[in-house]
Design a protein around this nucleic acid. Sequence first.
RNA 1: GGAAGGAUGGCAGAGCGGUUGAAUGCGCUGGUCUUGAAAACCAGUAUACCUUUGCAGGUAUCCAGGGUUCGAAUCCCUGUCCUUCCGCCA
Length: 422
Amino acid sequence: MIDLVALRKDPEAFAVAWKLRGMDVDVTALVEADTKVRQLKTESENKRSEANAASKSIGQAAREGKDIGEAKEAARLLGEEAKELNEKRESLEKELHDQLLGLPNPCLSDVPHGAGENDNVAGEQWGSVPGFTFAPKPHWELATELDIIDFERGSKMSGSGFVVYKGMGARLNRALINFFLQTLVDEEGYTELNVPLLVRPETMQGTGQLPKFGDQLYHCQEDDLYLIPTAEVPVTNFYANEILDAEQLPCKMTAHTPCFRREAGAAGVGTRGITRVHQFDKVEMVWLTKPEDTEKNLLELRSNAEKLLQKLGLHYRILDLCTGDTGFSAAHTYDLEVWSPGTGTWLEVSSCSTFTDFQSRRAKLRYRPEKGAKPELLYTLNGSGLALPRCLIAILETYQQEDGSIEIPDVLKPFMGLDAIS
RNA sequence: GGAAGGAUGGCAGAGCGGUUGAAUGCGCUGGUCUUGAAAACCAGUAUACCUUUGCAGGUAUCCAGGGUUCGAAUCCCUGUCCUUCCGCCA
């Protein structure tokens, strides 16, 4: 959520920022509502103050044994008036608050301007397009022939968009999880968390999935719990409503979880294989930081994800997302896209973002800059490290041999216990 | 799933429905004393918001949300969490 006080001070700046995201927001109406709320607040508080004073003198009079019948009625009326004004304020304030919850984070100043994904800025590439002496196959063919992914039985049990990894496929998936976690923990100083996959509505609101994107989430109605679409949700909310000490920052956490996404509206968007599924594994990196140097932190976070791709020897590129394509809660996002030789396309395997204080304000994530100082909102960042299925795709397609077997990248061999899948 | 008990300031722990934002102790901060430290003594020590240039004033907050009442930390209802017991169970 954005800072209402900042909006009050410079509404035009917000209007411009939202315009860059392709949204026309009536900031004047927002500011007017805010003014009205504060006016009602002052009125109701003054009335409440009168009522409190009246009650107090009744208490005094009662102790002195005086008659308090009339005074009681007067105090009751004052109390009622105060309550009425306050209820008016509350409903207006809630309305305003709900509107604010639906407004995205303004992008940082160095984010490229643009309307949509075509305006994203392609940055550096690492490695080069792998060459083949034969026509490389797409992963779904390789996986089916090797019998390491069972698409049909996945949809038999759960519908389309669900798959079963089998044999060496399951092992490769597990090897990747272990490789990612171990690298992040041992080499980059992350703390590993194993978190709940079902969370409450307020947790979803903390990171921005709710109220706006509820239709993308699986919901367990009986218990009013949501299946997480990413580990970002429980990991970022880990310290929600808490005040951290400055020494605890930056706090780097990582977690492997399955991710559940309804992908409503994305059905049939020409994705074969495991590029877009309803359930997949992902290792996520989350940072809680002090507000300064968030762009620098973002680059470092991104480099952690890049290192994983480099170790796997996968060709990838960096995309600097433009204002029109940056996600709702993010202020600046870099995507990492890996090359898929079988389809000749780039696949997003990591999305690294800073959320400034947008999530912190929702989740009440604060820290104390110095001992005895006032608590302040901290900044949150996160990035995938990495999304499993698309890494798996890139590995199968990049390391495929002419005979249909798959060579295992060196860094994964200890986790696989073999050199090739055939 | 059933039964019972609990949730108060950084921590511990009081609190007959009426100057209780909340005793007391510890902790913390400042001061006195001391060569320095400790001890002792004195003073201060929650958060958010609103009004105000400022001084200052006001409102809310004793898990959360409702209710009773002129007045609620205190009484009633609902929810959340914790503890204990029973049942079930990987």
